[in-house]
Computed example of a mutant assay.
Amino acid sequence: MKAVLMTAPGNPDVLQLQEVPTPSIENDTEILVRLQAAGVNPIDTKLRRRGTFYPDQMPAILGCDGAGVVEAVGSGVQRFRVGDEVYFCQGGLGGKQGNYAQYVVVDERFVAPKPTSLSFVAAAAAPLVLITAWEALCDRGRLQLGQKVLIHAGAGGVGHVAIQLAKLHGATVCTTVSSHEKAAFVHQLGADRAILYKEKDFVQAVLDWSGEGVDLAFDTVGGETFAKTFAAVRVYGDIVTILEPDASTNWKVARNRNLRVSYELMLTPMLQGLVSAQQHQADILNQCRQWFDEGKLKIHLNKIFPLEKAATAHQVLEAGSTMGKIVLVTGSE
Rank of each mutant, 00 (worst) to 15 (best):
Leu168Met: 14
His169Met: 13
Leu259Phe: 05
Ala227Glu: 14
Val235Glu: 12
Glu181Thr: 15
Lys200Pro: 00
Tyr263Ser: 12
Gln147Tyr: 04
Cys174Leu: 08
Thr241Ser: 15
Gly273Ile: 14
Ile284Ser: 14
Ile195Asp: 03
Val203His: 01
Ala231Trp: 02
Glu244Tyr: 08
Tyr197Arg: 04
Ser262Cys: 11
Leu145Ser: 11
Lys198Glu: 07
Glu244His: 02
Gln279Val: 15
Gly222Leu: 07
Gly170Arg: 13
Ala171Arg: 04
Met270Arg: 11
Lys252Glu: 12
Leu259His: 06
His280Ala: 14
Val214Leu: 08
Gly154Lys: 06
Leu285Pro: 00
Lys200Arg: 12
Thr220Gly: 09
Ala231Thr: 07
Ala232Lys: 08
Tyr197Ser: 01
Arg142Ala: 14
Gln287Val: 12
His187Tyr: 04
Asp283Gly: 13
Glu244Asp: 09
Lys148Cys: 00
Phe185Trp: 02
Thr220His: 08
Val173Phe: 09
Ala153Thr: 02
Thr225Val: 15
Ile242Gly: 01
Phe218Arg: 10
Ser248Gln: 12
Ala155Met: 03
Leu271Trp: 10
Ile239Met: 08
Asn258Glu: 11
Tyr197Asp: 01
Tyr236Ser: 11
Ile163His: 05
Phe202Ile: 03
Gln281Val: 10
Arg255Asp: 01
Thr229Val: 05
Ala217Asn: 06
His187Asn: 07
Gly159Val: 10
Leu143Ile: 05
Asp238Gly: 04
Asn256Ser: 05
Leu207Pro: 00
Thr176Lys: 06
Thr249Asp: 05
Ala162Gln: 05
Val186Asp: 03
Glu224Phe: 02
His187Ser: 12
Glu224Ala: 14
Ala277Ser: 12
